[in-house]
Amino acid sequence: MKLNKGDIVARLSYQCDLLFRVVEIYADYVELAGEDMRLLADAPLDDVVIVSEEDRTAHAKKARELEENSYRLFRQDAKLMKQRGDYQVTSGYKSETAYFELRGRVLHIDGDALYLRKCTELYNKLGVPVYGVHLPEREMPEQIGSLLEMVKPDIVVITGHDAYLKTKGDERDVRAYRNTKYFAECVRIARKHSWHRDDLIVFAGACQSHFETLIKAGANFASSPERVNIHALDPVYIASRVSLTSFMDRVSLANVLRNTISGEKGLGGIETKGVMRRGMPMKYD
């Protein structure tokens, strides 16, 4: 079996439970990135198998069903928030006042270029303004300060790939995680830029990231409380919910986690206000 970069493979030792993209090939092992999950892994060459087109199609169908269900739940909640906004602005539907919305702007920094494209497409579908940047995780702390100054976002998402490595230490030791230390440093830099957690909303983390470290560093939302894998699009749903929630309202943690694919085992956070502001009158061109 000849492997090439970009091939879709699975690991025999894990009963082919997840699909991966081949990122780098070495003499006796390969570096892999999750196809749907934000997980980075190494595997011996004899442990990986190329996934057939038939199995890839079946996997893609299942993945689409999960994503579509999450999107449907999000749209339901967004519709309810819109109806509540209509009621408030029109004084209980007593007037026909038209209004506009200033939705929260997202700076999305992603360690995976393919995931960034998928996430940007979903932000656009949800009507959330976004500025996306692809950076390797280790370079993020060097660049985030200037990006915050340039973009001036309401929400920043710091994500990519991560993994807990049992051979590197105890689960409580942040040094046993591939990229949590870079995510945490980015959060600390973001908090120097804006220390108040309702002035700049921060999501940080990826698969199996050290949740406690990221929250203590200053994140509003982070992964992964149970050190499980998270879906590539989960950060988008959290950031978008904040973007579309009025600054007069709190983001319901239960509801926002319900809309994600990974749920509360993979994601968590603290009480946070929305950032969207309504205005009037509506001016028509």
Results as ranks from 00 to 15, higher is better:
Glu67Gly: 03
Lys125Gln: 08
Gly85Thr: 12
Val22Tyr: 00
Tyr14Cys: 01
Tyr284Val: 06
Glu68Ser: 13
Ala254Pro: 08
Leu107Pro: 12
Pro141Thr: 07
Pro153Leu: 09
Gly6Lys: 02
Tyr177Arg: 01
Gly169Asp: 10
Lys283Thr: 07
Tyr177Glu: 03
Asn255Gly: 08
Leu244Trp: 07
Leu116Phe: 06
Ala63Ser: 15
Trp195Met: 10
Arg241Ala: 04
Glu121Ser: 12
Tyr115His: 14
Leu116Asn: 08
Ala33Lys: 00
Gly85Val: 07
Gly279Trp: 05
Ile144Ser: 04
Lys5Thr: 02
Arg103Ser: 13
Ile109Val: 14
Ala58Cys: 10
Leu12Phe: 02
Glu68Gln: 11
Arg64His: 09
Phe211Pro: 01
Arg105Gly: 11
Thr90Lys: 06
Arg117Phe: 05
Gly104Phe: 12
Gly160Tyr: 00
Arg103Lys: 15
Gly218Tyr: 07
Arg258Gly: 09
Val133Thr: 14
Ala219Lys: 08
Leu3Phe: 12
Ser194Thr: 11
Glu212Trp: 13
Ile215Lys: 06
Thr57Glu: 14
Gly92Arg: 09
Arg197His: 08
Gly268Ile: 07
Leu135Asp: 15
Arg84Ala: 15
Val151Pro: 04
Gly132Pro: 15
Gly6Arg: 01
Met150Trp: 15
Gly85Asp: 13
Arg278Val: 15
Pro141Tyr: 06
Gly218Thr: 09
Glu149Ile: 06
His231Phe: 07
Ala190Gly: 10
Val157Ser: 05
Lys265His: 02
Trp195Gln: 12
Arg21Phe: 10
Val187Tyr: 03
Gly269Asn: 04
Ser240Tyr: 03
Val51Ser: 08
Asp36Lys: 07
Ile109Met: 05
Ala41Asn: 04
Val9Trp: 00
Val22Gln: 00
Asp36Ile: 01
Pro141Met: 06
Lys5Pro: 00
Arg188Met: 12
Leu233Trp: 00
Val275Gln: 01
Tyr14Asn: 01
Ile158Trp: 07
Ala27Gly: 03
Pro136Thr: 13
Leu102Pro: 13
His210Glu: 03
Asp7Arg: 03
Tyr71Phe: 15
Asp154Val: 11
Asp110Gly: 08
Ser224Met: 10
Ala206Tyr: 00
Leu253Ile: 11
Tyr29Lys: 11
Leu126Val: 10
Val106Gln: 14
Pro281His: 04
Arg21Asn: 05
Val22His: 01
Ser223Asp: 09
Glu212Leu: 12
Ala176Arg: 09
Ser252Arg: 04
Arg278Pro: 11
Arg75Glu: 14
Pro225Arg: 02
Glu171Ser: 04
Ile261Leu: 08
Ser70Asp: 06
Asp42Tyr: 15
Asn4Pro: 00
Lys166Phe: 00
Thr159Cys: 09
Pro235Val: 06
Ser70Arg: 08
His196Trp: 04
Arg172Asp: 06
Ile155Ser: 13
Glu271Ile: 05
His161Leu: 07
Gly145His: 06
Leu102Asn: 14
Ser224Ile: 10
Asn69Met: 11
Arg277Leu: 03
Val23Tyr: 00
Tyr29Val: 00
Val49His: 03
Asn179Val: 01
Asp285Lys: 07
Lys94Cys: 09
Val174Tyr: 11
Ala232Asp: 02
Tyr164Arg: 00
Ala60His: 15
Asp199Leu: 08
Phe211Thr: 03
Gln76Lys: 15
Pro136Arg: 13
Ile238Phe: 11
Phe221Arg: 13
Thr120Val: 13
Phe211His: 07
Val275Cys: 02
Arg21Ser: 03
Met37Arg: 11
Val106Lys: 14
Ala190Gln: 12
Ala58Ile: 11
His59Pro: 06
Leu214Val: 05
Lys62Arg: 14
Asp110His: 09
